[in-house]
Amino acid sequence: MIPAAFDYERVDTVDAAIAALRADEGAKLLAGGHSLLPQMKLRFVMPTKLIDIGRLHDLSYVHEDGGGVAIGALTRYHDLEASETLRQLAPIVASVAGQVGDPQVRHMGTIGGSVAHADPAGDMPSVLLALGATFVATGPGGMREIAAADMFPGLFQSALAGDEVLTEIRVPKTPGGWSYQKFTRRAQDWAVVGVAAVRMNGSANVSLTNMGLTPMRAAGVEEALAGGADPATAAERADEGTAPPSDSFGSDEYRRALAKVLVRRALEEALA
């Protein structure tokens, strides 16, 4: 299929992107396009205009930044996967970037595009949630920071305003224990269930992929760990507060069971 007709504008600056967004309510930003274009080809989404920010090369970077790592929103998965900085300072990001989609997708898809798309089945939003990442949005009034906990308010919804561009993502240095357990039917598929675990402050942050309308932290598990529970015991609380979908990849019940197994395995690996 072919997308419904739309206007197209390629912008050279973030300010131009913001101006273009403000000029057309039906406009959408196009980064790598690997979340948006498939939806448009099936005509599930029909924006009036695409604002191509794919050439804002200034927003493609990974560098150490004080206590953390700063990642430009237009950094491609392929570049995250290959980034020595990430491999050393936040290896879960590099590793998971290499598990998203397939090589062709990773050559085009960007971390910012994935975050803005806010797919609860996306790997990267879940990992960034576990890391407690900070998201930098640039809008008409300048920049603002959004905490991870506030970034994904609903299904396919991010906290970005209609006239904001996600410009940077900051993650803490987490070279220690981590694990991402991605359960798929086929390698190229989205996770049926994914679990990110990152060792932090002697315990672990745990988040869940595709267990509800948004990526979410496994609050029950984290609470149990904080209370001294061992991984197997804590993992039993993996599905607390979740609302997993039932679809052709698995039922609600199965996903809950999977989440428990995968959380246990993730904790065993991250805390080993």
């Binding site: 197209y8 396009g33 274009l37 080809k41 695409l50 191509d52 392929h78 050559h107 085009m108």
Partner: peptide, 21 residues
């Protein structure tokens, strides 16, 4: 992946990219 081509030497799926890109 039938539509895979090289863009600046790297594989991409040409069905999921605008010519404009």
């Amino acid at each position: 992946g039938s539509c895979t081509v090289l863009l600046d030497g790297e594989s991409v799926k040409s069905c999921t990219m605008l010519a404009a890109q």
